[in-house]
Write a protein that binds this DNA or RNA. Structure first.
Length: 872
RNA sequence: GCGGGCGUGGUGGAACUGGUAGACACAAGGGACUUAAAAUCCCUCGCCGCUAGGCGUACGGGUUCGAUUCCCGUCGCCCGCACCA
């Protein structure tokens, strides 16, 4: 027994250098083997990696190393999502350039990632802030502009008053900016838009083909796209002196309830509203009030339904001679449908609230099943479920769906103002993607505004449009716009004085195609289509669920846009998607209520009670709830410190072992120590094996009559088989459990005295395979053991061990015997023994005879090789 | 409100398409070794019970020879979207 300990501080850098020097993980595009592309979401270079990164990249690395061992040509690259606002904030605080800050962060984080021993092809590294990357983005922008995939239009936008920039709808969370947390305001601005809404139907339908995506993410995207089928319907205005307009067009998904209509509602932002308000101060005040509420309150849900009677009336479209009032209502959105609705209070809660407030009629037209038409009334709750139509003339008796069809053909046949009164229409919640940002540190939009020629694309030969280096951030807003000379340019068409676009692109554009650039990072064109088509889609993409909509939807759109412009030929960018859980940690608070970092405290355990005190002052500390690691709660653990103390392998192993990867994992000191002990145990096992018998090789043929040796070989081969299945299914925690089981069996076997040569060979084989199973997760330890065992080459280059199928199954099986569904005994029988024979054996068992106590079994269920149930 | 998911020991979690509930790990307790500590090794570890046995997968029902798994209802927790007509 040797007391020698495994020292990760020595061995980890050594192997990292070996991998580097031998270009082990450099991937060639012309490699003839099957391609496999595994990618983790690239990081923002904030300065340091955090435990979430460690978890993310450890998972991806297991997948990459496993598929390499399986003989695939694996692409596993890394890059930097390097544009964005924090760099500008840092520039302001530190009086430096955003690029300086960004690139020094990249350097620091790259060193951290390298210390993790990831099997990354660093020759393909890209940073989105590098002109060699964003020039191609600009070039594709021009292609997409030409292809009609991009427009420039004036629209109401979400304005973040703190970051002083525009946000996309997807970037507004609960009425607040996703980065700044500031309440978002509405502003009218001219912006560049990607026409993602043109692809709404395709993006929705193709979700069904993404069978290797989490159902949750697909559902979220489905809801976000928000398809609804309904119809546009014209209401003729009764003649009046307030407006020239002769009709109001509404959108509805419930035309079947038209006989229950009691008003028409307009959005406060409707153009008719604006027209009326111009002559009506009370209405103007009402609209202004709506706007105040619209932006100031984040909880719109509580806002009361408010309406303003315009005095206008429309003709009821199906009840001759009847008219309906026109209200402006605070709950009607301008950018959905037509910005106008018809209100059917009986079957819509919001309409009902408004009707009750203003004393409008409430006529039920959908009768719940079993209700009495004579007595059914609506109270304070609208009826929104299924039923049959009544009170509705020619629709009476129809189901909702039948009535929708009937009323649609009715309105399609009627003419109002020379067109059909109603038309079936599909609406989507998804809006076009506004990409203009009033920031310096982003990809310049390559267009020039000329007073004579209008908006002119920058010619491709003039790309890239590079950001100026000499900028200052002493004024708020867009430093690019403040730059004294940059924006002044000659018009590419007429040569006259013109102005460059000073808005830059949303950084989500950068991340919408980086996975494509990795396939040919040095190409002169944005992509090399043959190469990209060979690698893509990404076989396995891994990242946080927080990108379920933003990044993943934009990337799906961008792939379509790249296809339309000939840069790739593919339908979806990510074949397999995995969303990993967060890393959490206990929180600690001092008596005065301040958060305390885990490194500052000492935990003491007395039986089952744990207490904490401050390491230096000894002051008592309260142990709080387990939360996502965050700087504000100070419950963060620094990956560097963990790597320095325990080594990268231990950190990786613990991250993979403790929880299913899609769930949150709790980082605990005890857990890490357990992982570290396991590392030492493996090293001892290998060491003992070497000391015991250096001549023994795993190649020896083990005869099948040595039961001990055979049993160990079975365990080994089952583990190889099982671990492979678990890694392929991304069930890393179960793969880890199986490795523990194998290593426990091997350690036990190695501890026995007087092993025969067969057992020795089985042990040697088991240890060799154990090291290989371990290598995707603890690659440095695995290389060290591999070398110590005298194996040739690197374990990183070794093929995945072969499984002998005959060893996966025993020739005898132990079957549990249930009596009336309760487990009472068990019996060992030959595998695949016929049911009748099993029955005989079972009934002759003493144990069974005793429990049956003379009673005859009513029925015996024999599930082959599984279980026996005797029913009495 | 709408949509999705989940509920198993002290803890994280296993259990393939219904077939031995609690694999594996952490924590805890006991013991060995040691002057001592660390490390290591051995044992115990769902609950009740001396044993036989009984009870146990949030709760209440159902289907089945058999249910953590399927169905219905109730309770609780988490996530996403949310005035979308």
């Amino acid at each position: 027994m040797s007391g020698e300990r495994y020292n990760p501080r020595e061995s980890e850098p050594k192997w990292q250098k070996v991998w580097d020097d031998s270009k082990t993980f450099v991937t060639a595009n012309d490699d003839p083997r099957d391609p496999y592309y595994v990618l983790e979401m690239f990081p923002y270079p904030s300065g340091r990696i955090h435990m979430g990164h460690v978890r993310n990249y450890a998972m991806g690395d297991v997948v990459a190393r496993y598929h390499r061992a399986r003989g695939k040509n694996v692409l596993h690259p890394m890059g930097w999502d390097a544009f964005g606002l924090p760099a500008e904030n840092a520039a302001i605080e530190r009086k430096t350039h955003p690029g300086t800050w960004t690139y020094s962060n990249i350097e620091a984080m790259k060193a951290q990632l390298k210390s993790m021993g990831l099997s990354i092809d660093w020759t393909r590294e890209i940073a989105t802030c590098d002109p060699s990357y964003y020039r191609h983005q600009q070039s594709m922008f021009l292609d997409m502009l030409e292809a009609g995939l991009i427009t420039r239009k004036s629209s109401k936008v979400n304005w973040d008053p703190v970051d002083m920039t525009v946000l996309a709808n997807e970037q507004v969370i609960d009425g607040r900016g996703w980065r700044s947390g500031a309440a978002v305001e509405q502003r009218e601005l001219t912006q560049w838009f990607f026409k993602i809404s043109d692809f709404a139907e395709d993006l929705l339908e193709a979700l069904d083909t993404l069978t290797e995506w989490p159902e949750k993410v697909r559902t979220m995207q489905r809801n976000w796209i928000g398809k609804s089928e309904g119809m546009r319907l014209l209401f003729e205005l009764v003649e009046n002196d307030k407006t020239e307009a002769t009709s109001i067009e509404v959108f509805t998904t419930r035309p079947d309830t038209i006989f229950g209509a009691s008003f028409v509602g307009l959005s406060p932002d409707h153009k008719l509203t604006a027209q009326l308000a111009a002559a009506n101060p009370a209405l103007a005040e009402f609209v202004a009030e709506c706007h105040r509420h619209g932006t100031a309150t984040e909880t719109l849900e509580k806002a009361e339904k408010q309406g303003f009677d315009t005095g206008l009336r429309v003709k009821h479209p199906v009840i001759e001679g009847e008219t309906l009032p026109v209200y402006v209502a605070n709950f009607i959105l301008m950018d959905y449908g037509t910005g106008a609705i018809f209100g059917c209070p009986a079957h819509d809660q919001r309409d009902l609230d408004l009707a009750r407030k203003h004393g409008l009629g409430v006529t039920p037209v959908v009768l719940p099943p079993g209700a009495d038409p004579a007595s059914f009334v609506i109270g304070e709750e609208a009826y929104v479920d299924a039923g049959n139509i009544f009170n509705s003339a020619f629709l009476d008796g129809l189901s909702i769906d039948e009535a929708k069809k009937a009323i649609a053909s009715h309105f399609a046949a009627r003419q109002v103002e020379g067109r059909p009164q109603g038309q079936v229409e599909v609406n989507y919640r998804l809006r076009d993607w506004g990409i203009s940002r009033q920031r310096y540190w982003g990809c310049p939009i390559p267009v020039i505004h000329c007073e004579v020629c209008g908006t002119v694309p920058v010619p491709k030969k003039d790309l890239p449009v590079v950001l100026p280096e000499d900028v200052s951030f002493d004024k708020p807003g867009n430093a690019l716009d403040h730059h004294p000379s940059w924006k002044h340019a000659a018009c590419p068409q007429c040569g006259g004085a013109a102005r460059r676009e000073t808005d830059t692109m949303d950084t989500f554009v950068d991340s919408s195609w980086y996975y494509t650039r990795f396939t040919a990072p040095d190409a002169d064109t944005p992509t090399i289509p043959e190469v990209a088509n060979r690698w893509l889609p990404v076989d396995q993409y891994i990242g946080g669920v927080e990108h379920a909509i933003l990044h993943l939807l934009y990337s799906r759109f961008f792939t379509r846009a790249m296809k339309a412009t000939g840069h790739v030929d593919l339908d979806e960018p990510f074949k397999g998607l995995f969303t990993q859980g967060m890393v959490t940690h206990e929180t600690y608070k001092s008596q005065s209520g301040e958060w305390v970092n885990p490194t500052e405290i000492i935990i003491e355990t007395l039986g089952e009670t744990r207490t904490a005190r401050h390491g230096q002052t000894g002051a008592p500390i309260t142990i709080g709830s387990v939360e996502k690691m965050s700087k504000s709660k100070k419950n963060v653990v620094d990956p560097d410190e963990i790597v320095a103390t325990y080594g990268a392998d231990t950190a990786r192993w613990f991250m993979l072992s403790d929880s299913p990867p899609e769930r949150d994992v709790q980082w605990t000191e005890a857990g890490v120590e357990g992982a570290s002990r396991f590392q030492q145990r493996i090293w001892r096992l290998v060491h003992d094996l070497i000391e015991q018998n250096t001549k023994q090789s795993s190649d020896i043929v083990v005869p099948n009559d040595d039961n001990d040796a055979l049993a160990l070989r079975r365990i080994t081969h089952r583990a190889v088989h099982g671990v492979a299945e678990d890694i392929e299914g991304l069930r890393f925690n179960r793969a880890v459990a199986q490795i523990y089981e194998l290593s426990n069996a091997l350690i036990k076997s190695a501890g026995r005295e007087a092993l025969g040569p067969n057992q020795h060979a089985a042990l040697a084989e088991g240890v060799e395979k154990l090291i290989q199973l371990l290598s995707p997760m603890m690659p440095h330890l695995a290389e060290t053991c591999w070398e110590a065992l005298g194996k040739h080459g690197l374990v990183a280059d070794a093929p995945w061990p072969k499984v002998e199928a005959s060893l996966l199954e025993d020739d005898t099986v132990t079957l549990p015997i249930q009596i009336n569904g309760k487990r009472r005994a068990e019996i060992a029988v030959a595998k695949d023994l016929p049911g009748a024979e099993v029955e005989q054996l079972v009934l002759s068992l003493d144990e069974v005879i005793r429990i049956l106590d003379g009673k005859a079994p009513k029925k015996i269920v024999v599930v082959p090789n599984r279980i026996i149930n005797v029913v009495v």
